[in-house]
Each structure stands twice: as structure tokens, then as C-alpha cells.
């Protein structure tokens, strides 16, 4: 077996899903004996069979990945409960193995994956989708780039045809529940950890916090970083639409027209809202200086 085939063999074996008891499966999906596969390339010793030696890595693989995703989505875990969450994460990781050198990126596809696999959230789907979107937005806001912000003289040069680049760390969310309160309540009790040792012996469980009661109501949220801390800021619907339009690359005129297309506000009221939206966004540095991304 050449080196790349050897590595494909071992990757398949260490990444094979575990049993419900968190042990290595005795058979592959095709009915092959995993012990026989392990014997074919792993040497046993006087204490461990080839299968048992493989099992150390098989368990480490899953414990590490599950822990990494769990750390980024503690509120989702609190909403779904530990058993349902574990089952969801396993399904996600089987469908979406890591394709990045960094564990930081492991949960990137979870919001979209959960939308495509709604049965994992049961009756709390809408709430779970809001929570997963907000928790991923937090990860992005935490360490995405902050580019030089626009200064007053840049603002004076804007016209209807201008396009504005928003800060990469700014995430805009349209939610069906006020999950910012729920996520904040859970995150307060969480610590952060580094990527360090490669040894993982067991699953780590955190104490589940009490969750605030949630009632449906549309919430428009900006998740952003200011002075190296992440903040959630609620937006008016029109401000959300306007900023979302700009984020999608629409011109200023088109984004404003779209944001107010169904508005019953008078022209003066609309102007006041636009001015307020721009004042807040500029104050928080959400608009990047023209040309900074080039």
C-alpha cells in the first residue's frame, strides 16, 4: 500500500461513526469486519489488539470534533437537549467532514445543514434555526476582519449610485424569536478554550443553563464587533433591509428603494429613518473606506 492509500485507509477507519456507546463499530456499512481491517495494517501488542489500538484514534476523532462544534453552539445544545444535539452533530459531521485546517471553521455549514435536515430539531425547528444562525454569526463577528472605516469626508461623497462595503465582521440576521436574549443567557456561563493537545479521552459535558421563555416575534439583529467585543444590536426592519441590500452589493439608491418599498411612512419619516440608520452605522464603523478591499 502506498502512503496516500494508507492514509485513505486510516482516515476511513478513524472517521467511521461510533456506536451509541461511543465505541468502535465491529462492522463497516458494507459488512466487513473492522477487526480484520485493523489487523491488516496495525500491529497488536501484549495489551491491545489492533482493533483496540484503532479504537483509541476512532474515539479521539469523534470526541474532538463533537467538542469543537459543541463549544461554538452551547445555546443550540440547551435548546435541543443533549441527546438530540449529539445525534444532530453526528449527522452533521458525517455529512460535512472538516475541510479546513482550523477547527474554527467546523461549524460553518451547520445553519444551512440544519435547514436541510429539519427532523434533527423536532418541534423547535424555527427556534433552533434562529439560535444556530446567531451562534455562528457570533463566531464570524468574533474574529473576521475589521477594515478601516469610512470617515466623514467619504460620507459626503456618496450618491444614489454609490456602493458601500460593510465590515466583514458585521452579520445581519432576520429572526423569528428574540434569541439574542437566550443566547446571551447561555453564553454568559461559557468559557473559551484553545486548540491544544491531541489527546481526548472522553466527552466533556457542561451544566445546562435555565433558558428564558421564548415567544415568537420578528427581530432584526446586527451582530458586530466593537473594541474587540461582540455585540448584538437590534435594528428597525427598514434599517435591516437597507444594510442587507448594501451588503449584497446593491447601490445606495437601490438599497433604499428596496428597504422602503412596502413602507407606509411619509417621505420625511423615511428620510429620518435613513439618516438615523446611517448615523448609527457610521458611528459604529460599519461602512468600510472605499477601496480598502482592493
Amino acid at each position: 500500500m502506498n502512503l496516500v492509500d494508507f492514509q485513505r485507509r486510516m482516515f476511513e477507519d478513524v472517521s467511521r461513526p461510533l456506536t451509541r456507546e461511543w465505541k468502535t463499530r465491529i462492522q463497516t456499512d458494507e459488512g466487513e469486519s473492522v477487526a480484520a481491517i485493523a489487523n491488516s495494517y496495525i500491529t497488536p501488542n501484549d495489551r491491545l489488539t489492533s482493533f483496540e489500538r484503532l479504537e483509541i484514534y476512532n474515539r479521539q476523532y469523534w470526541f474532538r470534533l463533537i467538542d469543537a462544534v459543541s463549544e461554538d453552539f452551547p445555546a443550540l445544545q440547551a435548546v435541543l437537549g443533549a441527546r438530540r444535539f449529539d445525534s444532530m452533530i453526528l449527522g452533521y459531521l458525517v455529512d460535512t467532514p472538516s475541510t479546513s485546517f482550523s477547527l474554527r471553521d467546523l461549524g460553518a455549514s451547520l445553519p444551512k445543514w440544519l435547514e436541510r435536515n429539519p427532523h434533527h430539531a423536532g418541534s423547535r425547528l424555527r427556534l433552533a434555526l434562529d439560535v444556530v444562525a446567531l451562534e455562528w454569526a457570533y463566531v464570524e463577528a468574533f474574529d473576521r476582519a475589521a477594515l478601516p472605516p469610512m470617515v466623514e469626508s467619504d460620507l459626503h461623497q456618496l450618491n444614489d449610485a454609490s456602493t458601500l462595503m460593510l465590515q466583514p465582521h458585521l452579520q445581519l440576521l432576520k429572526l423569528s424569536y428574540p434569541v439574542d436574549e437566550l443566547v446571551l443567557a447561555v453564553h454568559r456561563g461559557q468559557g473559551t478554550s484553545d486548540i491544544v493537545s491531541n489527546a481526548v479521552v472522553d466527552r466533556k459535558r457542561k451544566v445546562q443553563p435555565r433558558l428564558p421563555k421564548m415567544q415568537r416575534s420578528n427581530v432584526y439583529l446586527a451582530v458586530h464587533r466593537y473594541d474587540n467585543s461582540v455585540y448584538y444590536r437590534r435594528l428597525e426592519p427598514e434599517a435591516y433591509e437597507l444594510l442587507s441590500g448594501l451588503q449584497k452589493g446593491r447601490s445606495l439608491g437601490a438599497a433604499i428603494a428596496e428597504a422602503f418599498s412596502t413602507s407606509g411612512d411619509s417621505a420625511e419619516e423615511q428620510a429620518a429613518k435613513i439618516q438615523q440608520c446611517f448615523a448609527h452605522a457610521a458611528e459604529l464603523g460599519w461602512f468600510c473606506r472605499p477601496g480598502v478591499a482592493d
Binding site: N2, F11, Q60, S98, S100, L103
Partner: peptide
Amino acid sequence: CWGSVDGRYTHDLLPLPYTFEAIRT
């Protein structure tokens, strides 16, 4: 060590077989 193959990452420090091919690679 090794830890990735075909663009997929294990995030583990997996030992290599001690072969001459592994030395060269």
C-alpha cells in the same frame, strides 16, 4: 505526523508508517 487526506482533516496528530516513502514525502 499526518492528519489530512483528499482535502479532509482529522484534526489529530496521526503517526506515520516508518517507511522510506514516508521519509521522502
